[in-house]
Design a protein around this nucleic acid. Structure first.
Lengths: 346, 346
DNA sequence: TTGTAAGCGTTATCAA
DNA sequence: TTGATAACGCTTACAA
């Protein structure tokens, strides 16, 4: 057996005795219709020769590839990897190739990744991750780059605060935090500390704002809320937890603005002899899968991560494109588990 | 401002007053050398016009793209997402675009993904995940498809048991398990249960074999080892943990063949009133990041996941390709934490 | 060293 | 409806 050159469309056309154009139309859909018997001959030839279209050549000719870009901050973070799993499933299902980009939370990197996907002629882009309210310039440049992407025929769905071109899938950060506040106040907590991300991270700010609203509605003095800020990841939570442990009173409850921060915070508290929930209650946000099995199981606000990834990919890939960009709010649900309890009497 | 057509190499060549060939050689490296002053003119023109090469056209002409494929079983699993994070970093660094494929542990899907990446003319492929010893036919077809990939100029690095074409990065599953066995025996355990993946999953089999060796070397009766099998994920661990809890005695120690299985097992045990490590010790394998912060912190065998991902990507992307395929064994290190303790007296 | 021109494998335009 | 033929944007023999 000779080293066989890959079968091209020209081979198929020759074998079927039709032109290149007809072969192309018959095999890879087109508006044009070909006579059934010809189409049949072409398909038979293609099958016989084992023809497989070359995606690169198609991309060049069509000015559009079968790539879908997924851009996240950090794929090792369960929040993002869960969403990625959902998006993957849809990409597979639609015979698209998923590309993955990690920004490391750097807005410039994020923009560069969009540019890359534009050059690759990606058909769609799913952008996951918080807006930065304190860097409007970067946000503007991102929007511009996304416009350029869309101008090339690409579709965009961002899992994020509204404001970018394209569809938006927005977890109800504010509402979820509000309800969590109500639940915690209902348990009797009046002195809570919040472990937040850096100022300017919109997701963190939204959750904080919602939490404040919820506490206020429950009649808790807003002045009693202590806010500790740190990086929006496990280590940021750990650092804040350490600070808190050093000076806990009168705090009876800690709300970490993400589950991974909560995980770090609980570790820090525990290492310093503060018991959860006996000494202090802790709640998080996101409901990442791994924290359901821990002790104590983490109270949190559940957002359906995999299904968000799935839905975002589906919106970005859906045909035909909607007339207007869509804005969907994903409800969040409070899940009280063992890490929260009524404050200790006295 | 008019809707500007993207700048092509032809534009640059015209502007610089040289041929297309010279422009190409000056901008995108080539063996050929161009006279310095011409090169200078071309670069200036490119900069002035804001020329960016079209990766799709380059891929078609070069028969090789700037895509690196990463194939894993499940991106939501921290084992794989940690490796992915490492691979991402290297891809970024080398200006490659990373594509992600998830097999769902289906060998056919795995083969299909390799085919896809071959058609995309990916430059390299990083394949992560256990070999299936009980499906030699699938393994053979995978090998064939990888050969085809390599024949197209693609490079392969698999994080896996040896046997596939290309470089191999193999965590020392057997040795790590052996040492863990020694450590557990050293604590005094004589009746251990193993929670294993399905028969035929090589990683699981290797760890089991190493563990048996280690126990035997420590003088523990091999017949005393109970093996519970289940899916090689959290739910499989949970199911096995539930079985174990129902009939624990005389087991004093459980070794789950992966951390995620251990996590499920601990949850099941706990729900049934079995305390870890008071009633039974539990150890896992992998050292996924999230389980360092749990209570009790999980004893495990550490393999450096991110760095494995990094190294695999680097091997696959390294220039020039090595003469011979490389086989690197990554040492594994026993980490004893709070989930293991000496067996309770009596 | 530079330029001409022939690919790379498809799609799309336009005339028949 | 079908078929030449010109893109698509770049690389690379081969010739000058």
């Amino acid at each position: 057996m000779t080293t066989s050159r890959p079968v091209t469309l020209a081979d198929v056309a020759r074998q079927a005795g039709v032109s290149l154009a007809t072969a192309s139309r018959a095999l890879n859909g087109s508006a044009r219709v070909v006579r059934p018997d010809l189409a049949e001959r072409v398909c038979a030839a293609a099958a016989e020769l084992g023809y497989v279209p070359d995606p690169v050549a198609q991309s060049l000719a069509r000015k559009s590839s079968n790539l879908v870009g997924l851009i996240v901050h950090d794929i090792a973070d369960p929040f993002f990897s869960s969403i990625a799993a959902g998006a993957m499933r849809v990409a597979d299902e639609m015979d698209m190739v998923l590309t993955l980009g990690a920004t490391g939370r750097d807005p410039r990197r994020e923009i560069a990744l969009v540019t890359t996907m534009k050059l690759q002629r990606a058909r769609a882009l799913v952008l996951v991750g918080s807006r930065l309210t304190d860097d409007p310039e970067a946000e503007q440049r991102l929007a511009t780059e996304l416009e350029a992407f869309a101008a090339n025929g690409g579709r965009v769905c961002s899992v994020r605060q509204p404001g970018l071109p394209g569809d938006v899938l927005q977890p109800d950060n504010r509402g979820g935090a509000r309800e969590l506040a109500a639940a915690l106040a209902g348990l009797g907590h009046r002195h809570v500390a919040v472990i937040a991300g850096p100022e300017g991270v919109a997701t963190s700010e939204d959750r904080l704002a919602g939490f404040r609203e919820g506490l206020a509605a429950a009649g808790v003095d807003p002045g009693s809320i202590r806010v500790h800020r740190g990086r929006f990841d496990r280590d940021g939570g750990y650092a804040a937890g350490a600070e808190l442990a050093a000076d806990l009173s009168p705090t009876t409850c800690v709300f970490a603005l993400s589950d991974v921060m909560a995980m770090g915070a609980v570790a820090a508290l525990r290492e310093r002899g503060v018991s959860v929930p006996d000494d202090v209650s802790v709640a998080g946000f996101d409901d990442i899968p791994t924290l359901r099995d821990t002790v104590p199981a983490l109270s949190t606000v559940r957002i359906p991560l995999e299904s968000i990834g799935e839905r975002a990919a589906r919106m970005a890939l859906e045909n035909p494109a909607p007339e207007e960009p869509r804005h969907v709010v994903i409800p969040a649900e409070v899940v009280l588990r063992a890490s929260t309890a009524p404050p200790r009497a006295g």
